[in-house]
Amino acid sequence: MLRVERVNAGYGDIQVLWDVSFHVAEREFVVLVGANGAGKSTIMRTISSMIQPISGQIWFEDQRLDHVPPYRITNVGISHVPEGRQLFPEMTVLENLELGSLAPRAKDHRKETLAWVLELFPRLRERQKQLAGTLSGGEQQMCAIARGLMSRPKMMLFDEPSLGLSPLLTQEIFRLAMKIHSEGVTILMVEQNVKQTLTICDRAYVLENGRIVLEGKGRELLEDEQVKQAFLGI
Protein backbone atom coordinates (compact mmCIF):
# COMPACT_ATOMS: atom_id res chain seq x y z
CA MET A 1 0.00 0.00 0.00
CA LEU A 2 2.75 2.41 1.02
CA ARG A 3 6.20 2.03 -0.45
CA VAL A 4 9.16 4.15 0.56
CA GLU A 5 12.03 3.61 -1.85
CA ARG A 6 15.62 4.65 -1.18
CA VAL A 7 14.66 7.93 0.38
CA ASN A 8 17.29 10.45 1.41
CA ALA A 9 15.95 13.44 3.31
CA GLY A 10 16.90 16.08 5.84
CA TYR A 11 16.74 19.69 6.89
CA GLY A 12 18.82 22.12 4.89
CA ASP A 13 22.38 20.85 4.78
CA ILE A 14 21.83 18.23 7.45
CA GLN A 15 20.86 14.88 6.05
CA VAL A 16 18.84 12.76 8.45
CA LEU A 17 17.58 9.81 6.40
CA TRP A 18 20.02 7.68 4.45
CA ASP A 19 18.66 5.39 1.77
CA VAL A 20 15.56 4.41 3.71
CA SER A 21 13.32 1.80 2.11
CA PHE A 22 10.35 0.04 3.63
CA HIS A 23 6.77 -0.84 2.85
CA VAL A 24 3.44 -1.21 4.57
CA ALA A 25 0.88 -3.64 3.14
CA GLU A 26 -2.83 -3.06 3.23
CA ARG A 27 -4.40 -3.65 6.68
CA GLU A 28 -1.00 -4.08 8.26
CA PHE A 29 0.10 -2.57 11.57
CA VAL A 30 3.72 -1.52 11.15
CA VAL A 31 5.93 0.15 13.73
CA LEU A 32 9.16 2.08 13.30
CA VAL A 33 11.24 2.01 16.44
CA GLY A 34 14.44 3.79 17.19
CA ALA A 35 16.20 6.00 19.68
CA ASN A 36 15.95 9.78 19.89
CA GLY A 37 17.21 11.42 16.73
CA ALA A 38 17.14 8.23 14.70
CA GLY A 39 14.95 9.94 12.11
CA LYS A 40 11.54 8.49 12.97
CA SER A 41 9.63 11.77 12.88
CA THR A 42 11.52 12.83 9.77
CA ILE A 43 10.18 9.75 7.98
CA MET A 44 6.65 10.68 9.00
CA ARG A 45 7.12 14.29 7.92
CA THR A 46 8.51 13.13 4.59
CA ILE A 47 5.56 10.82 3.94
CA SER A 48 3.08 13.58 4.71
CA SER A 49 5.09 15.85 2.42
CA MET A 50 6.06 18.45 5.01
CA ILE A 51 9.64 17.78 3.94
CA GLN A 52 10.66 17.08 0.37
CA PRO A 53 13.08 14.16 0.01
CA ILE A 54 16.48 14.89 -1.55
CA SER A 55 16.14 11.71 -3.59
CA GLY A 56 14.06 8.57 -3.66
CA GLN A 57 10.37 7.97 -4.12
CA ILE A 58 7.29 7.48 -1.98
CA TRP A 59 4.32 5.63 -3.41
CA PHE A 60 0.85 5.22 -1.98
CA GLU A 61 -1.27 2.75 -3.93
CA ASP A 62 -0.64 3.98 -7.49
CA GLN A 63 0.18 7.56 -6.64
CA ARG A 64 3.57 9.12 -6.17
CA LEU A 65 3.55 11.21 -3.01
CA ASP A 66 6.87 13.00 -2.95
CA HIS A 67 6.52 16.52 -4.34
CA VAL A 68 2.76 16.60 -3.71
CA PRO A 69 1.90 19.67 -1.58
CA PRO A 70 1.15 18.74 2.06
CA TYR A 71 -2.49 19.83 1.98
CA ARG A 72 -3.22 17.25 -0.77
CA ILE A 73 -1.94 14.28 1.23
CA THR A 74 -5.17 13.86 3.16
CA ASN A 75 -7.08 13.58 -0.13
CA VAL A 76 -5.25 10.39 -1.09
CA GLY A 77 -6.37 8.73 2.13
CA ILE A 78 -3.46 9.24 4.51
CA SER A 79 -4.02 10.91 7.84
CA HIS A 80 -1.13 12.10 9.98
CA VAL A 81 -1.55 12.33 13.75
CA PRO A 82 1.42 14.58 14.42
CA GLU A 83 3.86 14.42 17.28
CA GLY A 84 2.80 16.62 20.17
CA ARG A 85 -0.84 16.58 19.04
CA GLN A 86 -0.86 19.94 17.20
CA LEU A 87 -4.51 20.64 17.89
CA PHE A 88 -6.09 24.04 17.29
CA PRO A 89 -6.18 25.10 20.96
CA GLU A 90 -8.57 28.04 20.61
CA MET A 91 -11.20 25.96 18.84
CA THR A 92 -13.67 23.58 20.44
CA VAL A 93 -13.21 19.83 20.26
CA LEU A 94 -16.08 19.63 17.78
CA GLU A 95 -14.55 22.31 15.54
CA ASN A 96 -11.23 20.46 15.63
CA LEU A 97 -12.99 17.28 14.54
CA GLU A 98 -14.90 19.04 11.77
CA LEU A 99 -11.65 20.46 10.40
CA GLY A 100 -10.46 16.86 10.13
CA SER A 101 -13.06 16.11 7.48
CA LEU A 102 -12.29 18.70 4.80
CA ALA A 103 -11.23 16.22 2.13
CA PRO A 104 -14.09 15.86 -0.37
CA ARG A 105 -14.29 12.13 0.26
CA ALA A 106 -14.75 12.70 3.99
CA LYS A 107 -17.05 15.70 3.78
CA ASP A 108 -19.98 13.74 2.37
CA HIS A 109 -19.91 11.35 5.32
CA ARG A 110 -19.14 13.90 8.02
CA LYS A 111 -22.20 13.11 10.14
CA GLU A 112 -21.75 9.33 10.20
CA THR A 113 -18.01 9.63 10.74
CA LEU A 114 -18.58 12.01 13.62
CA ALA A 115 -21.06 9.64 15.24
CA TRP A 116 -18.63 6.74 14.80
CA VAL A 117 -15.68 8.72 16.16
CA LEU A 118 -17.62 9.96 19.18
CA GLU A 119 -18.67 6.39 19.91
CA LEU A 120 -15.02 5.37 19.79
CA PHE A 121 -14.07 8.26 22.09
CA PRO A 122 -16.91 8.77 24.59
CA ARG A 123 -14.66 11.18 26.51
CA LEU A 124 -14.69 13.57 23.57
CA ARG A 125 -18.47 13.43 23.33
CA GLU A 126 -18.69 14.82 26.86
CA ARG A 127 -16.22 17.56 26.02
CA GLN A 128 -17.19 18.49 22.48
CA LYS A 129 -17.98 22.13 23.35
CA GLN A 130 -14.79 22.61 25.32
CA LEU A 131 -11.76 24.43 23.87
CA ALA A 132 -9.20 21.85 22.76
CA GLY A 133 -6.43 23.72 24.59
CA THR A 134 -8.14 23.04 27.93
CA LEU A 135 -8.16 19.26 27.56
CA SER A 136 -5.78 17.05 29.53
CA GLY A 137 -2.81 15.53 27.71
CA GLY A 138 -4.52 12.19 27.19
CA GLU A 139 -7.72 13.79 25.97
CA GLN A 140 -5.74 15.98 23.59
CA GLN A 141 -4.08 12.90 22.13
CA MET A 142 -7.49 11.29 21.73
CA CYS A 143 -8.78 14.44 20.07
CA ALA A 144 -5.83 14.41 17.65
CA ILE A 145 -6.45 10.76 16.78
CA ALA A 146 -10.19 11.39 16.41
CA ARG A 147 -9.46 14.37 14.16
CA GLY A 148 -7.25 12.12 12.07
CA LEU A 149 -10.04 9.55 11.76
CA MET A 150 -12.49 12.21 10.58
CA SER A 151 -10.86 12.21 7.14
CA ARG A 152 -11.85 8.53 6.71
CA PRO A 153 -8.23 7.52 6.06
CA LYS A 154 -7.15 4.29 4.48
CA MET A 155 -3.94 4.66 6.39
CA MET A 156 -3.01 6.48 9.57
CA LEU A 157 0.41 7.72 10.59
CA PHE A 158 0.89 7.92 14.36
CA ASP A 159 3.87 9.98 15.45
CA GLU A 160 4.78 9.11 19.06
CA PRO A 161 1.24 8.91 20.38
CA SER A 162 2.48 8.04 23.87
CA LEU A 163 4.57 11.20 24.19
CA GLY A 164 4.02 12.79 27.59
CA LEU A 165 1.33 10.35 28.69
CA SER A 166 1.20 8.21 31.83
CA PRO A 167 1.74 4.43 31.34
CA LEU A 168 -1.96 3.84 31.91
CA LEU A 169 -3.03 6.37 29.27
CA THR A 170 -0.36 5.05 26.92
CA GLN A 171 -1.96 1.62 27.12
CA GLU A 172 -5.35 3.19 26.47
CA ILE A 173 -4.00 4.93 23.36
CA PHE A 174 -2.42 1.70 22.08
CA ARG A 175 -5.70 -0.12 22.67
CA LEU A 176 -7.46 2.51 20.59
CA ALA A 177 -4.88 2.15 17.83
CA MET A 178 -5.55 -1.59 17.77
CA LYS A 179 -9.29 -0.93 17.68
CA ILE A 180 -8.86 1.41 14.72
CA HIS A 181 -6.66 -1.19 13.04
CA SER A 182 -9.33 -3.85 13.54
CA GLU A 183 -11.82 -1.59 11.78
CA GLY A 184 -9.74 -1.89 8.62
CA VAL A 185 -7.36 1.07 8.79
CA THR A 186 -3.73 0.45 7.90
CA ILE A 187 -1.39 1.82 10.55
CA LEU A 188 2.18 3.08 10.55
CA MET A 189 3.35 4.08 13.99
CA VAL A 190 6.52 5.63 15.25
CA GLU A 191 7.31 4.92 18.89
CA GLN A 192 9.96 4.94 21.55
CA ASN A 193 7.89 2.63 23.67
CA VAL A 194 9.54 -0.37 22.08
CA LYS A 195 8.36 -3.27 24.20
CA GLN A 196 4.65 -2.51 24.05
CA THR A 197 4.52 -1.58 20.40
CA LEU A 198 6.46 -4.64 19.29
CA THR A 199 3.88 -6.75 21.10
CA ILE A 200 0.89 -5.26 19.29
CA CYS A 201 2.24 -4.72 15.77
CA ASP A 202 2.41 -7.06 12.78
CA ARG A 203 5.81 -5.99 11.58
CA ALA A 204 8.48 -3.54 12.66
CA TYR A 205 11.55 -1.76 11.39
CA VAL A 206 14.42 -0.65 13.59
CA LEU A 207 15.95 2.68 12.71
CA GLU A 208 19.42 3.74 13.75
CA ASN A 209 21.10 7.01 12.78
CA GLY A 210 18.79 7.47 9.84
CA ARG A 211 19.24 3.98 8.45
CA ILE A 212 17.01 0.93 8.69
CA VAL A 213 19.09 -1.75 10.38
CA LEU A 214 16.57 -4.49 11.18
CA GLU A 215 13.23 -5.69 9.96
CA GLY A 216 10.95 -8.41 11.19
CA LYS A 217 7.77 -9.57 12.86
CA GLY A 218 7.13 -7.76 16.11
CA ARG A 219 7.44 -10.83 18.34
CA GLU A 220 10.62 -11.97 16.59
CA LEU A 221 12.27 -8.61 17.14
CA LEU A 222 11.38 -8.79 20.81
CA GLU A 223 13.57 -11.91 21.01
CA ASP A 224 16.39 -10.36 18.96
CA GLU A 225 19.62 -9.95 20.93
CA GLN A 226 20.48 -6.64 19.30
CA VAL A 227 17.07 -5.15 20.07
CA LYS A 228 17.13 -6.50 23.59
CA GLN A 229 20.46 -4.85 24.22
CA ALA A 230 19.76 -1.56 22.54
CA PHE A 231 16.19 -0.88 23.63
CA LEU A 232 15.00 -3.21 26.29
CA GLY A 233 18.00 -3.05 28.57
CA ILE A 234 18.06 -6.80 29.12
Binding site: Q86, L87, E90, L99
Partner: peptide, 15 residues
Amino acid sequence: VAIREDQDAAESMGI
Protein backbone atom coordinates in the same frame (compact mmCIF):
# COMPACT_ATOMS: atom_id res chain seq x y z
CA VAL B 1 -8.00 30.50 12.50
CA ALA B 2 -6.73 26.96 11.88
CA ILE B 3 -3.72 28.42 10.04
CA ARG B 4 -3.14 30.87 12.90
CA GLU B 5 -3.28 28.12 15.51
CA ASP B 6 -1.02 25.68 13.72
CA GLN B 7 -0.09 26.00 10.09
CA ASP B 8 1.36 22.50 9.76
CA ALA B 9 -1.66 20.86 11.35
CA ALA B 10 -3.95 22.93 9.11
CA GLU B 11 -2.06 21.71 6.06
CA SER B 12 -2.29 18.11 7.16
CA MET B 13 -6.08 18.63 7.44
CA GLY B 14 -6.08 19.52 3.75
CA ILE B 15 -6.09 23.32 4.01
